[in-house]
């Protein structure tokens, strides 16, 4: 039986040939802009804007890549992006796991009112309330600081809600058993609940890291100092400010975008599950 299924699966039926051909065509269209960007980054600035357009560089050169490292602050931006995203991810996972568990499993005064307040926060984003958020952070003296970039990204109501729903689904018996064995609530949380929720925590962490690494609007608003900018921010503002050099711009863009894509190739299953999980939790 299993052999028969295996053979059946591997056979190239006509419908599979057609579907695969369509899939390859669609993939080619979707990947083309990335390939075009990659080829542009290996052209000289003159060749990049030469007419007629050529797909492949005539003379492959790493000039654009060496230029962005030599002239700009791109290494600074890269490190800043890394520091900000890692801090944001760590704080978000810790804080929203604690809060999700608190709302799901513990009792305290005004819990339901606070939960409703947190749900209301799903509608607030830096895009909607950017100016008041800026003046708030300004009054805390955090303009042009790491904390100013990091902390406002660390209060995502959505992540609390996702983990809250997840913790509600864990059978209470496990916690009760641990409690009978003499564990306190913090120990139960850290030794029983957190290990059980690894997939959900990973989902929240992955989604948060992607969102934070790619965040443009908030770092753009809160930093003026080119040394403090993150990758997306620096590429969009500083690299565009002295006349566009397309090959360098594409090289910088790839440097901002490729790390996540490379990570994705290796951790595809986890990332897909993580993004789908966080997205589906909105249901």
């Amino acid at each position: 039986m299993s052999v028969a299924v295996g053979v059946h699966r591997r056979r190239w039926r006509p419908s599979q040939i057609v579907l695969t051909a369509v899939g390859l065509l669609v993939s080619a269209v979707l990947v083309a802009p990335l390939v075009w960007t990659l080829f542009t980054s290996f052209k000289s600035e003159e060749e990049a804007v030469a007419v007629p357009v050529q797909w492949l560089p005539k003379d492959w050169t790493g000039q654009a890549w060496t230029n962005i490292f030599e002239t700009g602050n791109i290494t600074n931006w890269f490190v800043n992006s890394l520091v900000v995203s890692v801090c944001v991810t760590f704080i978000v996972v810790l804080v929203s796991a604690l809060a999700g568990y608190g709302f799901a499993r513990t009792e305290f005064r005004g819990k339901s009112a606070l939960m409703a307040l947190v749900m209301a926060g799903l509608m607030v984003s830096p895009a909607v309330l950017g100016v008041p958020l800026f003046t708030t952070v300004q009054s805390l003296g955090m303009v042009d600081t790491y904390w100013g970039m990091i902390l406002p990204q660390c209060a995502p109501a959505a992540m609390v809600y996702i983990l809250y729903r997840f913790f509600q689904g864990i059978p209470r018996e496990l916690e009760e058993a641990a409690f009978i064995d003499g564990a306190g609530r913090w120990r139960i949380f850290f030794t029983i609940v957190l290990p059980l929720s690894r997939p959900s925590l990973a989902a929240v962490g992955i989604f948060t890291f992607i969102a934070s690494w790619n965040n443009f609007l908030w770092p753009y608003m809160i930093t003026n100092n080119p040394d403090l900018m993150t990758m997306p921010n620096g590429i969009a503002t500083v690299m565009n400010s002295y006349g566009v050099q397309w090959a360098q711009l594409m090289a910088g863009g790839l440097m901002a975008g490729l790390p996540l894509i490379v990570v994705f190739v290796f951790f595809q299953r986890q990332i897909v599950a993580g993004v789908a999980h966080t997205g589906l939790a909105g249901q």
Binding site: L94, V95, S96, L98, A99, Y101, G102, F103, R105, T106, E107, F108, R109, K111, L114, L117, V118, G121, V124, L129, V131, P132, L133, T135, T136, V137, L140, L151, P152, C154, A155, A157, V160, F179, G184, R185, F189
Partner: peptide
Amino acid sequence: AFQHGGWFVAPFLLLYALFVLTPLARG
């Protein structure tokens, strides 16, 4: 044992109050 869960939610609520509720009220 699971009363006083306030400590679990406190860190989040602090950040939430500072960076979501305050800007809303301030705006």
